[in-house]
């Protein structure tokens, strides 16, 4: 996996909905999700390095999120749906074991 900050992929099936309608969100991020249970050829344990948290907020309010364990596959993928009550900025955040954060945003409009 790349050592540089992974670039997330986000797809909303639509960005403008009427109140009460749903938006389907898919997200994919490049990450090795090193489990901490594998050994290198010298027999040393390869330290755990995973994305341990994912959140989706609408104007700072938590809408959907997940706490990840090493049993989530590499390149974590999430598909979920939201029923936003208002227009605003959706902020997606992935948090790495090393403390680094990867963020992405999308604007949505509720009419």
């Amino acid at each position: 996996m790349a050592e540089t900050a992974p670039k997330p992929r986000i797809r909303l099936d639509r960005k403008e909905v009427k109140a009460g309608e749903t938006i389907e969100i898919k997200s994919l991020i490049s990450h090795i999700m090193e489990s901490g249970q594998r050994r290198d050829p010298q027999g040393n344990i390869i330290p755990r390095k995973i994305i341990n948290k994912f959140t989706c907020e609408l104007d700072g309010e938590m809408v959907f999120g997940a706490d990840l364990e090493p049993a989530v596959s590499a390149n974590p993928y999430f598909q979920f749906k939201i029923k936003p009550g208002k227009s605003g900025t959706l902020k997606f955040t992935w948090i790495d074991d090393d403390g680094s954060k990867i963020e992405a945003t999308e604007q949505i409009k509720v009419t």
């Binding site: 790349a2 992974p6 670039k7 992929r9 797809r11 898919k26 994919l28 991020i29 490049s30 390149n75 993928y77």
Partner: peptide, 12 residues
Amino acid sequence: DFNNPGFLAIER
């Protein structure tokens, strides 16, 4: 293409 993790490589 969005479900396909191979596209992470394509973007790189």
